[in-house]
Nucleic acid binder design. Structure first.
Length: 492
RNA sequence: CGGGGUGUAGCGUAGCCCGGUUAGCGCGCCUGCUUUGGGAGCAGGAGGUCGCAAGUUCGAAUCUUGCCACCCCGACCA
């Protein structure tokens, strides 16, 4: 049967959507710009949540929950913040419906207008800082290290499954500190947590760095980010950690009595990652056979497919398969035995390839005789016959090997697609021919960055922490002196 | 909000330019038998307001007008 994944060279967009659909991750909903996350897609998100949540707890954070609705007036308290989000807010203006007097169904009841409109949170800084005002009086109340798992709404003009939807799931950490230094350390620490998660769980290498002024979070003093490179050569911001200074403390009047008896404004950070990470996972590892999941995040790490010709064989093979399943489960491997009789083995092989299950274990009458099984790797699509006796060890090793191989593959891809550009022509040529990350000199001004964006759609993804040691040069666009190279790319 | 495109069965599509039987095909679905180590085969079956509305015509999936929805490329953005 022909597989009609279109080649990625022709249309990455279609390739991506096909994977989302055929792996059963999500589908578009009746509501414009929103998606339904299906059970398998949600299971991946749950794995991410579990790993991240543990990392947050290990760094001293606790979870809490704040309201979905934010009074409109809260937004106007921080000037940059309101400007950044004003254009994409969903606003609740009424609280009641009624039957249309002219019999045309249900209409909004104009008599039920809210005195103050409520904004559906696009992010929660304002309502959280309004709350923190009551929580903080003394330096003894600090720090506050709180995280929230929630949904947010940003009324985007154009959407894409997982990568940009009108509503999305995320976590947002909001911390309050007594000193600038402590807040800054928190900002860096959480960026490191994100980079650790991206590289060691998602198997996606990321660049850590600071955002330029143009790309900075609305209301932040400094925005740090991790940037990943997708297989189509576009960059994806995979996580952000913001140093908010005293901006929100001042806007919401959050002060504390310090040890010396003075009254000081609190220092703040916020940081977040979203279901966009599921999109990153898809774009980073998938191939023309479908999704490829790193073992650490795969809801199913090993799928067992029994093969048989008749009832007698079925019983033998299935009891052996069950035995293997129990053994692996006992060892902590997430294993599924697919003993459905409604689909043939070949069908199942393809299905689990779409779904990106890292290891497939096939067992048939021949294997039962020989004391072997067939193991197939999703990342390389290679197969080998292994002994049943050492299976637990073999699989444990294999899962680690696959996790590592995926990271190495993604890292090689990024290295092959990171290029230096030393002239404006070269810069434009690389962008159009190959994409990827481009290291180039920049004069440090917002005007130049904007002009480059207008002409090429490329933006500064970050000013990376590493690789700053290079010789000085001149700006690729303006020719003015530049102290260091920064990372440009077209981005999602 | 600009530029382009598409709406025909659950999904993918042919037919439209040049109006004319009962709208065709593939996948999927249902039934039966044979099958099961890479998307099974054969036989039979169910499933359609041709996006919506109006117009032209003896006759509209096909022509005209209006509307709606979705997709792609931009602007906006995680």
């Amino acid at each position: 049967m022909a597989k009609d994944f279109s080649t990625r060279e022709e249309n990455y967009s279609k390739w991506y959507n096909d994977i989302v659909q055929r792996a059963g991750l999500a589908e578009s909903s009746a509501v414009r710009g929103c998606m339904v996350i299906k059970p398998y897609g949600y299971a991946i998100w749950e794995k991410m949540q579990a790993a991240l949540d543990t990392m947050f707890k290990d760094t001293g954070h606790s979870n809490a929950y704040f309201p979905l609705f934010i009074p409109k007036s809260f937004f106007s308290k921080e000037a940059d913040h309101v400007e950044g989000f004003a254009k994409e807010c969903a606003v609740v203006t009424h609280y009641r419906l009624k039957n249309d007097p002219e019999g045309k169904g249900i209409v909004v009841d104009d008599n039920a207008r809210l005195e103050e409109e409520l904004v559906v949170r696009p992010t929660s800084e304002t309502i959280i800082w309004d709350t923190y005002r009551h929580w903080v009086q003394s330096y003894r109340d600090l720090p506050i290290l709180v995280n929230q798992w929630a949904n947010v709404v940003r009324w985007e003009m154009r959407t894409r499954m997982f990568l940009r939807t009108s509503e999305f799931l995320w976590q947002e950490g909001h911390t309050a500190h007594a000193t600038e230094q402590e807040a800054m350390e928190e900002t860096y620490q959480m960026l490191d947590v994100y980079a650790d998660f991206a590289e060691n769980h998602m198997a996606i290498p990321v660049l850590k760095g600071v955002k330029s002024e143009n790309e900075r979070f609305a209301g932040a003093v400094e925005t740090f980010c991790i940037e990943a490179l997708m297989q189509d050569g576009k960059a994806l911001q995979a996580g952000t950690s913001h140093f908010l200074g005293q901006n929100f403390a001042k806007a919401f009047d959050v002060k504390f009595a310090d040890k010396q008896g003075g009254l000081e404004y609190v220092w703040a950070t916020s940081w977040g990652v979203s279901t966009r990470l599921v999109g990153a996972l898809i774009m980073a590892h998938s191939d023309d056979h479908g999704l490829v999941l790193p073992p650490r995040l795969a809801p199913i790490q090993v799928v067992i497919v029994p093969i048989y010709k008749n009832d007698e064989q079925y019983e033998k093979v299935r009891s052996k398969a069950k035995e293997i399943k129990d053994r692996l489960r006992k060892q902590g491997v997430r294993v599924k035995l697919d003993d459905r009789d409604t689909h043939k083995p070949g069908w199942k092989f393809n299905e689990y390839e779409f779904k990106g299950v890292p290891v497939r274990l096939a067992i048939g009458p021949r294997d039962v005789e020989n004391g072997t099984v067939e193991l197939a790797r999703r990342d390389t699509l290679s197969k080998e016959i292994v002994s049943m006796d050492e299976l637990n060890q073999t699989i444990e090793t294999l899962l680690v090997t696959i996790q590592d191989a995926l990271y190495q593959r993604a890292l090689s891809f990024r290295e092959e697609n990171t290029r230096k550009a030393d002239s404006w022509d070269e810069f434009k040529r690389i962008l159009d021919d190959k994409g990827g990350f481009i290291l180039a000199h920049w004069d440090g001004t917002a005007e130049t960055e904007q002009k480059i964006k207008d002409e090429t759609r490329a933006t500064i993804r970050c000013i990376p922490f590493e690789d700053g040691s290079e010789e000085k040069g001149s700006c690729i666009y303006s020719g003015k002196p530049s102290k260091r190279r920064v990372v440009f790319a077209r981005a999602y």
